[in-house]
Design a protein around this nucleic acid. Structure first.
Lengths: 348, 348
DNA sequence: CCTTGTATAGAAAGCGCTTGCTGTAACGCT
DNA sequence: AGCGTTACAGCAAGCGCTTTCTATACAAGG
């Protein structure tokens, strides 16, 4: 029914061992023999049996990429960059690898399940992207799983995620705190004193770090923060819209709204407009990430650009062992403040 | 070193066969025995060896999702929906499956490579999303590959992609032609007579179908199309920006610009604004897809909503054999015209 | 001409799991 | 009591490949 190595061997009049060696190209095979084998492969339309090969060789060519939300360009861009350094015929020398992205939907259980599945497949490497959960039992479970994966020889890279102590994971961490701080400093520099903040889900590291940066900037400027000025929500437009209305209700005198990310910021803009407020004349808005659409908003969004594609590419190369990991296994990737039309001096 | 089935069997004082059956749960095992085995699995922290299992059972739990551009929400949304019906602990009864998305980057070779890789892994199912290439040799190669995959028992579903004759593939096709036609009819109905069209890459089916719909609407209204009114480009914002400038250069009297998709439309809006034109007062703009950000553009985008999430979910269910395929293996998914702020009556 | 070295091919032993088939008790029936 | 059932559990034969070790052939050196 299906063509096997043995069939190819028979047709090429060689032993299965030789065919295997031709296909893997890591053992001397005479040119004429190789030729003959390749022809047979072609004629029979032979396709290697991945599981069998993985079993015998005790390695696989699968590389997993875990993302929180594949529908969000933040992850899409990173995943794309990672994959481009790993998979398909895109890259490199050294055998094709199946780079696969797994969508956890931000759910801790799914994250764990995917890691187990990847462990089952004896994945060659795993890249985890985006913020981690701070929920304790889960964090411990993930760390344990990563440790076990690492012991089994799977290379692990965290991209845009805080380091995982006691594991072999290499971490490329985004400087969310620094970016958040810089952004708010910019707003304060323009003269804003009453700033609303729309944070992401409470239990994400990203949320906490960005918020900490924001607060650090306020503190440095001697601005006492009003607890009413912070609202939590999901990382999407809808949440931004609702949170903004809530913020406005709590304190109509706010002159700026800082959002957890660009999608949220867009929702905030919509809410402000729907409330009859002009941006930035009445209220300034700022986002985070600088996703491609952010420049198209009207007015275009002041935000912090994160080099998602670059970081992803680097993570991919490290996962493939094609780039030296940073010293200590940890590198911080900084963002860049992009001042655009959505922020201006406060009214009055 | 690594724990195997045999280790578990020894610990539970049963044969490996029994352990396997407990784990696969498709054969009667006494409750007490099962209990004992499960405990051993737990104590030993045993993880099934995927390749070995796939080899022995001649099946795998991998499901591949091919997308053209994972950084584009159009694909991200579909992939997310497909995956939610397939993978992780998200869905279903019947064993966990590893749903993986593969990014072809729109490259025919990568598409083929991924299909081969998936074939190697003996994937349980494959979902191909988005428009196909019309490039003849490649189309034939893909068809051949799909046929072979189908013969090997892999279920194949096309989502937002035209049917593949002579294969076992089930197709959920978007009615790009109908949507394109409806959109242009709307514009014509408003009074527009000189409409620019920014098409996608020439060799994509999606591009051709949307353009055909547009032209059908023009023809039906007795409008003779000027060849200068159509420009081709990639499916991204940048291309839309440049194409619009080109369109304006060719014929400054255009009163509407129809874009191949929403990203392109956003680029078009930016170009129009940068040219000092107001939307829709001077020029109306229309997109396609209705991605989440489209409603946030200023003005919000008139477009055709494609039920990406619904179609993806359905494709996922069909791929898993949890939903009957449509009769004839082909279903057409229609879009819905969303009239918003970016289209209005032409000036003068 | 025989020994040693080098290049290449084959034999065969698994890799860790699944599953058809073969026991073997315990059970129910006549 | 005798016999067919039923319900589990184990044996063992692979699944299709990789890889170590061994064999062969020929070239070169003494």
């Amino acid at each position: 029914m299906t063509v096997t190595l043995a069939d190819v061997a028979a047709r090429a009049q060689v032993s299965p061992a030789t065919v295997s060696r031709v296909l893997n190209g890591n053992y001397p095979v005479a040119a004429t023999t190789r030729e003959r084998v390749l022809r047979a492969v072609d004629e029979l339309d032979y396709v290697l049996n991945g599981p069998a090969s993985a079993l015998a060789a005790a390695t696989s060519d699968l590389v997993g990429i875990l993302v929180n939300d594949i529908a969000d360009p933040f992850f899409g861009i990173m995943a794309s960059a990672i994959q481009s350094e790993i998979g398909g015929p895109g890259g490199r020398a050294g055998g094709e690898r199946l780079a696969v992205v797994c969508n956890t939907g931000g759910s801790p259980e799914r994250e764990l399940t995917y890691l187990t599945l990847l462990q089952r497949q004896r994945a060659a490497a795993v890249v985890l992207t985006g913020g981690a959960m701070e929920n304790e039992p889960h964090a411990a479970a993930v760390a344990a799983k990563l440790r076990r994966l690492g012991e089994a020889g799977t290379r692990i890279v965290l991209c845009g995620r805080p380091p995982a102590p006691e594991t072999t994971a290499i971490a490329l961490t985004f400087d969310n705190r620094g970016g958040g701080r810089e952004l708010t400093e910019h707003l304060i520099g323009l003269g804003h004193r009453r700033l609303g903040y729309i944070a992401g889900p409470e239990e994400r590291t990203t949320t906490r770090h960005r918020l900490e940066g924001h607060r650090a900037a306020l503190a440095a400027a001697g601005i006492e923060e009003d607890p009413r000025w912070t609202v939590h929500g999901r990382y999407d437009r809808r949440a931004g819209y609702e949170a903004t209305l809530e913020l406005l209700r709590r304190d109509p005198s706010l002159t700026a709204v800082v959002a957890a990310n660009d999608s949220v910021a867009l929702g905030a803009c919509a809410a402000l407009r729907d409330s009859g407020l002009r941006i930035p004349d009445d209220v300034s808005v700022a986002g985070f990430d600088d996703l491609p659409f952010s420049i198209d908003a009207m007015p275009s969004l002041t935000t912090v650009r994160l080099p998602l594609a670059e970081a992803g590419a680097r993570a991919g190369r490290i996962a493939m062992g094609r780039e030296e990991p940073p010293p200590g296994g940890i590198a911080t990737v900084r963002g860049e403040l992009m001042v655009r039309g959505s922020s201006g001096v406060p009214r009055e």
